[in-house]
């Protein structure tokens, strides 16, 4: 009887540890997401351009990348481009979706890839970040992403090579449940 009690106790502890660890993993991968995005124009004016992350840390944005973006965009586009750009990996890992608010992101990516990109509409936001409090120039990420750009893995490498600090990966729960085999097994 006592042995059975201790075995159950051990199992419940293992269960809670596993649960905590697995949810910790989910938190860790999205710790680098920005609390709020900033416009390129605003970042260009900052002495050391940076954005605040979900975990409270700051992500430094390289001046070289900002200068490159400024060189390919005019003043009105610089006000419209929100950084860092968010990229979500597709369910089958072969495609990457870039979440964007307007046409400027499309222009930037098509210049980097040197090819035109088709226009797509996103059905619903992939994830919801808490809205940022503070100045009006910082725009909250949630409920603003209306369009997406889909690129392939080799193209992602090209984009990341050029824009290392001005792009950020998103790991959404939606992409995890998009896998049909996974959905079946959960049911």
């Amino acid at each position: 009887m006592a042995a059975q009690y201790w075995e159950e106790e051990r199992q419940s502890r293992y269960d809670s540890m596993l649960k905590g660890y697995l949810s910790g993993e989910l938190r860790l991968v999205n710790a680098g997401l920005p609390r709020s995005q900033k416009t390129l124009a605003l970042l260009l004016r900052e002495e050391s351009p940076h954005v605040m992350c979900q975990d409270g840390s700051t992500q430094l944005i390289k001046r070289k990348e900002l200068d490159y973006l400024a060189s390919i965009l005019d003043a009105s586009e610089q006000d419209a481009l929100l950084l860092p750009m968010l990229m979500e990996l597709g369910g089958d890992q072969s495609q990457v979706t870039i979440l964007c608010a307007g046409q400027v992101e499309r222009k930037v990516i098509s210049i980097i890839l040197d090819m035109p990109l088709p226009r797509e509409q996103q059905a619903s936001p992939a994830f919801a970040l808490p809205p940022a409090s503070g100045s009006s120039t910082k725009i909250p990420v949630s409920s603003r992403m209306g369009e997406t750009i889909t690129i392939y893995r080799p193209q992602l490498a090209l984009v990341r090579k050029r824009l290392k600090t001005t792009t950020q990966y998103v790991f959404s729960q939606r992409s995890a449940t998009r896998d049909p085999s996974l959905t079946n097994s959960i049911e």
């Binding site: 991968v29 990996l89 890992q93 992409s175 995890a176 996974l182």
Partner: peptide, 14 residues
């Protein structure tokens, strides 16, 4: 627990 583990596995693989 299995559903959670599978979800995490997908994210960790990504």
């Amino acid at each position: 627990r299995l559903a959670l583990a599978q979800r995490v596995q997908k994210i960790v693989k990504d």
